[in-house]
């Protein structure tokens, strides 16, 4: 019952997110809107119930399980992208290398400014 109550909260927030997406016409998925609404609600309440924490931990721990049927698709529709595999591979390898190094550099620079006392807070 404990898990089910938390799961019900998550499903209701997902439905609310879908409602917001359709009624306001936002180009963002209902799940993301539900996530933002959950975070905002928890911040307003100032605490998270055990049931909700337990249900969310459970779902997050099986994320790999929920993702894997989608990943399998890449092996079966590979032929649709046959002509573009090389550009996709280069974009992924070079793009990820560049963005990883850029993030580290930005973090080092902004955090370094803090320790040198340039920040105003």
């Amino acid at each position: 019952m404990v898990l089910l109550r938390g799961f019900l909260v998550l499903v209701v927030f997902f439905l609310l997110g879908e409602a917001l997406r359709v009624l306001v016409g936002l180009p963002i998925s209902g799940g993301v809107l539900g996530m933002v609404m959950v975070t905002a609600t928890l911040m307003l309440r100032g605490r998270v119930s055990d049931q909700l924490a337990e249900a969310s931990r459970g779902l997050i721990s099986v994320l790999v399980l929920l993702i894997s049927p989608g990943v399998v698709g890449v092996f079966f529709i590979a032929d649709r992208f046959a002509g573009h595999w090389f550009s996709v591979a280069v974009a992924l390898v070079a793009g990820t290398l560049l963005s990883s190094v850029t993030t580290l550099w930005l973090m080092k620079k902004t955090a370094g400014d803090r320790t040198r006392g340039h920040s105003h807070d």
Partner: peptide, 20 residues
């Protein structure tokens, strides 16, 4: 199984709150 990705996305809001 994959329909559960919807509520799983919503679930990510909980650690996000806990890391606030």
């Amino acid at each position: 199984l994959t329909v559960l990705l919807g509520p799983a996305t919503v679930a990510l809001g909980v650690p996000l709150y806990q890391q606030m």
